[in-house]
Amino acid sequence: MKTLLGISAVALVSVLLSSSFSVSAEPIPADKIATLREAPLNVEPTPPAMQKVINSDVKEVRNYPMQPPVIPHKIDGYQVNLKVNKCMSCHDRSRTGDSQAPMVSVTHYMDRENNFLATLSPRRYFCTQCHVPQLDAKLLVPNDFVDMDTLIKADINKEAKH
């Protein structure tokens, strides 16, 4: 009985949450939800044209302070494996003088106990786990992310009205 109550409470809360946060943006058409392939399984469709990677070298604003910054340039053929890390040939502390690239943040030199290391922490070695270049592509799924500054501003405005 108790578990049943618990489950229904959770269900109720989630229904409430989803209705209050429901997105108003235009959804994907129903016939495209199952697949974006748009061809029968036994047919090899012509792939869409490849999108160009943004190569402007202009920093993109982060959506929240902890966001790993996105890469503002091409990384085609950049080798990152056990032998070499091409990214670090510019972004390493000792390389930033020549390259004028931003240094990887200090967290990249810390292990998980927050001890500082002399070199890049192994858990931060593979850059593209967190950092990726961007395409100038049309969004497939609408994104209704709201920046927290906007939320705070909206809140202040609301309070001012009352």
């Binding site: 032998k83 070499v84 091409k86 670090m88 040939s89 390389r95």
Partner: peptide
């Protein structure tokens, strides 16, 4: 460096 092939271990190479 490495414009056409994979690079070897670059330990100690200038600029790496």
């Amino acid at each position: 460096k490495g414009i056409a092939h994979h690079l070897p271990d670059m330990q100690g190479v200038e600029g790496w």
